[in-house]
């Protein structure tokens, strides 16, 4: 295996796309919201808020990924 240049922290390595991150953020937000609803018996308001927050978090993560310095090729 050829030695690869180590990526700096906060620089996602190549292949670590933003798609999974986006999905995961929305899912986690929705799950947290649903958990809140389950405890507080307030369906669907917590889930809606959670999904919105998850979407916002996903956009934030992608914004962060776009703003970080591009890692070296390969």
């Amino acid at each position: 295996m050829p030695p690869k240049p180590a990526p700096q922290p906060d620089n996602p390595p190549p292949g670590a796309g933003a798609g999974g991150l986006f999905l995961a953020c929305v899912l986690v937000g929705g799950a947290l919201g649903y958990g809140f609803d389950y405890i507080m018996n307030s369906l669907p308001w917590g889930s809606l808020a959670g999904l919105g927050l998850g979407f916002a978090a996903a956009l934030r993560e992608i914004w962060r990924a776009l703003n970080s310095k591009p890692s070296q090729e390969n």
């Binding site: 953020c25 899912l27 937000g29 978090a57």
Partner: peptide, 24 residues
């Protein structure tokens, strides 16, 4: 009040992303 939930969601999403990326 807005940033803290977003950061918590991002933090919780990390391990899920790891798992989803590899499996997918």
């Amino acid at each position: 009040p807005l940033i803290v939930p977003l950061e918590i969601i991002s933090f919780l999403a990390r391990p899920l992303t790891l798992a989803v990326r590899l499996a997918a």
